[in-house]
Amino acid sequence: MRINLSGVAVDDQQKALRFYTETLGFRVKHNIPLGEHSWITVVSEEAPEGTELVLEPAAHPAIGPYRKALVEDGIPFTSFAVDDVGAEHERLVAKGVRFVQPPTDLGTVITAVFDDTCGNLIQIMEEKAQA
């Protein structure tokens, strides 16, 4: 068994597609219209055959209150790995991304949290080299 998909619920799939590709820099893997919504997945340029991130429509009525409660407490919907949180923070801020938590050194990891403009907070995490 393998984990091939992960998902993030988004307010607007087309807006999310732009944010996750143009701003974050992921690549579209699938974009298949399915009635009202689409099956959209993106992959990392660094691992195009790796786990796909599904940009799922946040259409189910339970998703609204769930995501609202997560955002209220600053809890990220998911987390991405980066080599250098400081450099990513600088790059994304230059593109107008709003961070709710700037790069924070937590000992073994450095993390930061930003708003994906589609209803979620997303964490980026760098594992520090062991001294």
């Binding site: 600053g74 809890i75 709710v100 938590q101 924070t104 937590l106 000992g107 073994t108 993390t111």
Partner: peptide, 17 residues
């Protein structure tokens, strides 16, 4: 150390630090 933290950030700092 840093003003304006969410519950998530506070919990993370308490665990990790």
């Amino acid at each position: 150390d840093r003003s304006g933290q969410s519950l998530f950030e506070i919990c993370g700092r308490l665990i990790m630090k």
